[in-house]
Every structure is written in C-alpha cells, then in structure tokens.
C-alpha cells in the first residue's frame, strides 16, 4: 500500500483545460461550462460544489468521459479523452474510472457480489481476491454478498456501489451526490469510507455534492457558479463551505 501512497500530492489524476459545454442552439443556448480549467491531484478527495445549475454535474460528466465537450480538453491519467471515440471512452471508463451515483447504482438482476465484480467482468479482468475481500470487509458487506439489491437497504446499496467503484483500482472514482438519497447516518458511513479510501488506500475521489457537510469530508472543495470556476477551499469545514456558498449567492 505504501507504493500507492508514494506519489500522493505530486501526480495529476484528472485535469480539464478551457472546458466548454453548450446545451441547445441559438437564442436558447446555455453555456453550462464556460472555459473551466481545473486539475485534480492523485490521492486526494475533492468535492465539486455549487448552486443548482452551476454546471457541477456537467463538469463531472465531461471529466468522466460520459458526455462530449464543445471545447477544451480533458486528461484522465495522462490520456487526452475528448478526442476518443465511444469505444475507447467505454474502455477507459471500464479500466480506469469508478462511479458512485446518487441512486440506481446497481443492476436489480444481479447479486451484490456480481454487481461489485461487474466492471471487472466487462473488462475481462480477473478480480484480485485479496483486494476484493479487503474492500468487502471494510464496507461490512460480507454477509450481504448473495443478496439482490432489492433486499438491501439504501446505505448498503451505496456501499456496494462504492465497493464496485474501488475493486478495479481505478485512476479516479467519481461520486455524483453519493449521499443524496441516504439518511444522515448511512450518508456519514459512505463518506467515511470514501475518505478512508483516499487516506489509507491512496485512491483519488472526485465528488459532486450540494451538501456542505458532505463536502467537509473532502481535502479540497472546488466551487462552481454559472459555468465558471468560482473559488477553492482547502481542508474545508461545513461552516467554511456554507459561507463560501452564501457568498456565491446560492
């Protein structure tokens, strides 16, 4: 594990330069991202925040290669992704990116274990059993592996999603409002785990959230407003984030 931690704070995991994303055309065109340049250091936990409509989800989608961009470029682990074709993007997501979404993270037809291993199976990779066991035990999912998602609580489902995101050892994990649908206790568990995965396992996590408390778990907060970068907070607390947001007029 020490090897993983070694380049913390030195290597850039994900970077965007002059990112532009426009929805619609002509008069109704909306510039969701208007020249955003931002870099995310490997081995750190970053929260992207901003009021509704600030473009934070769009930024995440573009960074993760889920959506195409209208200008600028994005690097994920050294690869320029805006010029990639769908097939290569898919391969990139499958091999180097992990996701935790707000809801509907799991396939209802598969067991928790099959869901965790789904990404690896799609990539045709053999799971590292030791690593799998570590994650499962840390997340307390051992006795839930044979259950279908409908038999799991919301918090358990989100933890399964976290396990899936981490099991492939991706370059970066994107979490899109991962606690949005959870009660505060389950939410705290998930956030604790995300922070732990960064601190102890050397993972890189980028989380989109509108909850200042959730953001306070991160090492750094990137603030977005109207498609522009609007500031940064290092080592944030709930209060410092809240006041920064107020400042943005949210």
């Amino acid at each position: 594990m020490s090897a993983l931690v070694s380049d913390v704070g030195t290597r850039t995991a994900v970077a965007a330069a002059n990112l532009v994303k426009v929805y619609g055309k002509g008069d109704t065109a909306v510039r969701a991202l208007d020249g955003v340049s931002v870099a995310f250091t490997a081995g750190r936990f970053t929260a992207i925040m901003g009021p509704s409509g600030s473009g934070k989800s769009t930024l995440m989608h573009c960074l993760a290669g889920l959506d195409n961009v209208d200008g600028g470029n994005v690097h994920v682990g050294g690869t320029e992704i805006t010029s990639l074709a769908d097939k290569e993007l898919t391969k990139l997501r499958r091999d180097r990116v992990g996701f935790v979404f707000q809801a509907f993270n799991l396939l209802p037809t598969l067991t928790a274990e099959a869901n965790i291993l789904l990404g690896l199976e799609l990539a045709g990779r053999k799971p590292d059993r030791e690593w799998f066991d570590t994650i499962v035990d840390v997340l307390g999912l051992r006795d839930r592996l044979k259950h279908k998602p409908t038999e799991l609580s919301g918090g358990q489902q989100q933890r399964v999603a976290c396990a899936r995101a981490l099991v492939a050892r991706p370059d970066v994990v994107f979490a899109d409002e991962p606690t949005g649908n959870l009660d505060s206790r389950s939410g705290a568990e998930v956030l604790d785990f995300l922070r732990m995965s960064v601190r102890k396992l050397g993972q890189t996590v980028i989380m989109v959230t509108h909850d200042p408390v959730a953001a306070s778990y991160a090492d750094r907060v990137v603030l977005l407003a109207d498609g522009h970068l609007a500031g940064e907070i290092d080592n944030p607390t709930a209060d410092s984030v809240l006041s920064a947001l107020k400042h943005l007029g949210a």
Binding site: A64, L66, D86, K87, T90, K91, R93, R94, D95, F99, F101, F104, N105, L107, P108, L118, G119, L122, A123, R164
Partner: peptide, 12 residues
C-alpha cells in the same frame, strides 16, 4: 439501467 451499464464500461 442501460446508462449505468454504459457508464460502467459496457460498449455500445
């Protein structure tokens, strides 16, 4: 569900 699968790396 399909979108999720695509996000997780299922090709078109």
């Amino acid at each position: 569900e399909s979108a999720l699968l695509r996000a997780l790396g299922l090709t078109r």
